[in-house]
Amino acid sequence: MRGGGWRLAVFCFVLGFVLNLVGIVGHVVVSSFARRWFATPLPPDWTTAWYAYSWREFQLPQILTVTVVVAGSVTALALLLGFPAAWALARRDIRAKGALLLLYFLPLLIPQMTYGIPLATTLYRYHIGGTIVGVILANLVPMLPLAIFILLPFFEQISVNLEWAARVHGASRFQVFRRVVLPLAVPGLLTAGLLILVTTVANFELTFLLSGAGSQTLVVALYYAVFAAGMRPIYSVDAMAVIYMAIVLAILLVALRFVRPTQMVFRLDRG
C-alpha cells in the first residue's frame, strides 16, 4: 500500500533525525569525559578532571550566579507584568485588542539580532548596557509577551461565573482575587514560569549583545569558549556545555510534566 510506504519513509527520516540529535548531544557528553580523543569511536581513557578545570578556568561559580539571578528576575518580572495584562485581555472588552496583541507579538516575531542592536545602543547610551540590570531588562522584552501569550488561553478558560458567584456571596474584590482567581491561575503561572525560565537560560542573542565582563550568563560564556576554540582544551569547553545542558534539561524535564511539546512553539491558529 502506498500509504504504508510513506509512513515508513517518514518514520525512517524522523528516526534518522533523532539519531543525529543523539549523536550531536552524545558527542559533547563523551568528549567532556575524555582524557584525549582522536578519531576513534570512543576515547581510550576517561576522566572527570575537565569538570574541575572548567569550573575553575571559566569562572563558573560567578557565571552560574549571574545566570540564576537573570533567569529568576526575568521570570518573576515577566509573570508580574504579564499576569494583569493577560487577565485584562481575557476578561474585558479591550478597545484596541488587535493592535495590542500585535504590539506584544512583534518582539517574539522579529529576530533578536534585528532589534537587539538598536536596543543595545539605547541601553549603552544610558549606561545600563553591560550590567546585569541591562541583561534582565533586555531579556524581559521578548519574555513579557511570551508570558502574556502563554497565560491568555489559561485565563480564557476560567469561567467568569466563578467570580460572579464569589461576589454574590459577599466576597470583596481582593478576596475574589486571593481565593478564586489566584488558585485557578496557578497552572497557567506554573507553565508560563517554567517555559520562561528555560527560554531565558538558553536565550543567547539579547544577553550576548547586552552583557559585559561581569554579566555573562552561562550560554554567553559557552559561546565565547566555543568561539575561542584552541585557547583551552576542547574537552573543557564540552564539560561546560554539559553543565549548561544539565541545567536546561532539568528545567525542561519539570516543564514537560505540564506542557505538551507542541506548546513549546508558536501556535499557528492564533496568528
Partner: peptide, 20 residues
C-alpha cells in the same frame, strides 16, 4: 526528543555539530 534542540539553543547545537 525534538524539543531538545529548541530548548538547548543554537550555541550548544553548534558545539555539538562541530564535534559530531
Amino acid at each position: 526528543l525534538l524539543v531538545l534542540p529548541i530548548a538547548l539553543g543554537t550555541v550548544l547545537v553548534a558545539e555539538g555539530i562541530n564535534g559530531f
